[in-house]
Design a protein around this nucleic acid. Structure first.
Length: 259
DNA sequence: ATGTCAATATACTATTGA
């Protein structure tokens, strides 16, 4: 008895609907986390026709996240605690009956570029708020999985060439320190735990300069497992198929299998 | 500095965010 959870930044659900439906048909994950919906409308009925319930929080033009689930799903909140001013649609927290309860959290962590602006400070503050939440969940009886676009390049081996990313918010020491603080608390990076030395395993490639064809990418879409959940990690796979199709998202899906 | 894509307003083009 195992459960498969996938995450994918689709870069507009409207533009990527055919890709999303094809991915669900091909891989049949039990749960799919989506980021960067880029609109207020969410096509819940089309996903329901494939047997997926959904919860979504949209925003005009930017951001937006959703969770699709074949299993019963209950929305807990769509706001990350710790700020009254933050109106971005970047967070959904749910409980899914697997049939034992599992806390499934979908995040679209702020990009933070350019460094030295309010955007970068917002990113760091958002990470601080998430860390506070993760500390609270660490000892909760319900195991937790956090998946999504973290906009963090954790280590040098998670990019094609560190020199290309030195000025990028995704690669700053402040950013990486906060990600490492999450791991230091006892959370597990699912992909890296299974493949500690694997290089050139990326989840995002820029649209320009034939970055995908040359595999000049970064690994920024992650699954973090709470200490109680980590022993149930079975597999983690980056599926590059959707990125190779016509008019793709710049990200490709990651799938994790839990027993 | 460059490059590409998607959404939107400024609307057969420019701006913004990524």
């Amino acid at each position: 008895m195992s459960i498969v959870i996938a995450t994918w930044n689709v870069n507009s659900i409207r533009a990527r609907m055919a890709h999303a439906l094809a991915f669900l048909e091909a891989r049949q994950p039990d749960v799919l986390l989506l980021q960067e919906l880029k609109g207020l409308e969410f096509p819940a009925l089309e996903f329901e026709a494939l047997g997926y319930h959904s919860v979504a929080i949209g925003q005009k033009s930017y951001n937006g996240v959703a969770i699709l689930s074949k299993l019963p799903i209950e929305m807990v909140t769509n706001k990350l605690a710790g700020s009254d001013e933050d109106t971005h649609a970047r967070y959904i927290e749910t409980i899914i009956d697997t049939p034992t309860k599992l806390r499934v959290v979908c995040i679209y962590l702020p990009n933070g570029n350019p460094v030295g602006t309010d955007k970068f400070l917002y990113k760091l503050q958002w990470m601080e708020r998430l860390i506070v939440q993760m500390a609270a969940w660490k000892n909760d009886p319900i195991p937790t999985i956090i998946g999504g676009d973290f906009n963090v390049i954790p280590e040098d081996i998670d990019c094609d060439k560190p020199a290309n990313w030195l000025r990028d918010a995704l690669f700053q020491p402040e950013t990486r320190d906060r990600y490492r603080a999450m791991l230091a608390m006892g959370w597990t990076d699912a992909f890296r735990a299974l493949y500690p030395d694997t290089r050139d395993a990326f989840t995002f490639w820029d649209y320009f300069r034939q970055a995908f064809e040359r595999n000049r990418g970064i690994r920024i879409d992650h699954f973090l497992l709470s200490p109680a959940l980590a022993p149930r990690l079975q597999a983690c796979e980056i599926d590059k198929t959707p990125r190779a199709q016509e008019k793709p998202s710049d990200h490709t899906p990651v799938l994790v299998t839990l027993n």
